[in-house]
Structures are given as structure tokens and as C-alpha cells.
Simulated scan of single mutants.
Amino acid sequence: MNSFDDVRARLDTVDYLVDDGLAMAVFLAVRLGKPLLLEGEPGVGKTAAAKALARALDTPLIRLQCYEGLTASEALYEWNYQRQLLAIRLAEADGSRLGDADLFTADFLQERAILRAVRYSGPRPPVLLIDEIDRADDEFEALLFEFLGEAAITIPELGTFVATRPPVVVLTSNHSRDLHDALRRRCLYHWIEFPGPARVAAIVRRAVPGAAEPLIRDTTEFVGRVRALDLEKAPGLAETIDWVSALAALGVTDLVEPLVPQTVGTIAKTPADRRAVVAALPSAAPPGGQP
């Protein structure tokens, strides 16, 4: 990727539309070899950005989904204890004995997502997606510092593995908690805003090519209004695409059709939000269109 215009063009070919800010952030992350931390509300396209980047670069996507309690053995590496136990028993059957130097070797190492990205030997570096880092614990963030700063992982029994081709690292966060300053310092940063109606319509048009243009216009404008309501979980791009897909599949062409209220579960995820969204639908207006 030679410029942020090139980033925009390549992502456009895989149907991911970006603004100047995100295009520049991705370009600098790739050019400088720095991890990129993407934050924003749920559903604005953070995870999709990493997936699209992998497609645009024609390289594998390695994904680590974070959650509370995530450990090093689940994210970095783990020893294959079953194989080690089998090796011990085979050695005992032969009258010999295995020590730690025999058991803690690369043959017994199980790669998890981050070590797999470090040791990847393909022609192009992979894209490593560390998704929803804010769901993991503070302690897990500390495990990432060496990797994020040096593209390396130290395994006490084997030494330090350094990536020959550092992966393109994208971390995402829904900003549900504050991340450690040390993690932020190791990353480039970009906040993804929910796009305006025109760009939402353009994104939906790519994602649901069979939907009628008036339906795309009306639904994206309606979602924009709904997001201004006092909702527990405002709908994001993913929910908007799901809604248009559902309406198109039902043959709906207008939001005043009777089936529309039955489909709002695609954008409203709590009972209170569903009531608010249904009340805001054009079909909910009294006859004559008077408020």
C-alpha cells in the first residue's frame, strides 16, 4: 500500500468503504509496522476493517477473540501435555528417562493465535486481529506488551521468537473500560465514528445489492433517527445491514408495510428498545400523518 488513497482503493475492491481518517490510520500501521488500535461503538465496523484489510492484502486473517479470563495458554502458546505424557511413558517402557530438556521442545509446542502470527512463514505477513481487547483482563494486556512492542514472544523453555515478517496487528475495543496506557503507547490509534446517512447507504448498497434503492434510503435515514433516541443499545452498521437484508428477503419496499414492525428485532436488542423503535416507525403515526 503506497498511500492512504491506495488503502482506500484496495479496501473499496473488497467492499469496505473508509473515510480519510481510517484510511490514513491503516496506511500508517502497515507502512510503519505498528499495531493499530481501533475503538468505537459496537457495530461501526472495527472487526470488519481487519477482515477487509486481510482480503485487500491477500493474506490470512488470524483472529483472537478476547473474553474475561483469557490466559496466555489460550492466546500465545501451550504445551501439549498429552504428547509429553505419552513420550514419558514410551521412554519408561524403553528403560530410559526424559528430562525437561527433552519434553519442553518445539515438538511439544502448541501455537495459539499470537505465536502463530509471529511464526507465520508465508510470503506476506498475516493480519492478526485481537478482537474486543477491552473484554479481557488487565493482566492479559500486560502479556501483550512484548509482542506489541517488538513483534516477539518469549517462551522461558525455548527463548524468544521474533517475527521475520511482523504481522499487521489490529486491536479493537468497544471502549467498555479504559485500556492500560502502556498498551495504548505501543499502538497507533483511531476512533471509528458511526458514518453519516449517505455513507451508511453506500455501505448497505454494497452489502445488500438486491435491495431496492428507496428501501436503502428510507432504512438508513430511519436508523440515523433511531440512534438519536435514548436506547440501551443503539443499532450499528451490522444491524442496519441485517435489517435491510431481512426486509429485502421479505419483499418489503416501504417502511409503512405491516410486516416491518415484526422485523425490528434485527436492530433492536432489548424489549424497551424494540418498543421505542416500533413507536418511531412511520407506520406508527396516526392516520393523516399528524403527530
Score class of each variant (00 low, 15 high):
Tyr77Thr: 04
Ser73Cys: 01
Leu98Phe: 04
Ala101Asp: 15
Ser73Asn: 13
Glu68Leu: 14
Leu53Thr: 03
Leu57Pro: 00
Glu78Val: 02
Glu92Thr: 09
Asp102Ile: 02
Gln65Cys: 04
Asp102Ser: 05
Ser73Lys: 12
Gln65Val: 06
Leu64Cys: 01
Gly99Lys: 13
Ala93Arg: 15
Ala72Ile: 11
Leu90Trp: 04
Leu61Gly: 02
Ala87Leu: 08
Leu70Ala: 05
Tyr81Lys: 08
Cys66Leu: 12
Pro60Arg: 00
Leu76Lys: 13
Tyr77Asn: 01
Leu64Ala: 02
Glu68Cys: 03
Gln82Pro: 00
Leu86Phe: 14
Leu64Ile: 06
Asp102Cys: 00
Gly69Thr: 07
Leu86Ser: 04
Tyr81Asp: 13
Gln84Asn: 00
Ser73Phe: 10
Tyr67Glu: 05
Arg89Tyr: 15
Leu98Thr: 05
Glu78Asn: 12
Ala56Arg: 08
Ala87Pro: 03
Gly95Ile: 08
Ser73Met: 04
Ala56Ser: 06
Leu76Tyr: 12
Leu103Asn: 04
Glu92Arg: 14
Glu78Arg: 12
Tyr77His: 09
Thr59Gln: 03
Leu70Ile: 14
Ala56Glu: 10
Leu90Ala: 12
Glu74Ser: 02
Asp100Tyr: 11
Leu76Ser: 10
Gln65Tyr: 14
Trp79Leu: 01
Leu98Gln: 08
Glu74Arg: 01
Pro60Glu: 11
Gly95Gln: 02
Gln84Met: 15
Asp102His: 03
Ser96Leu: 11
Gly99Thr: 15
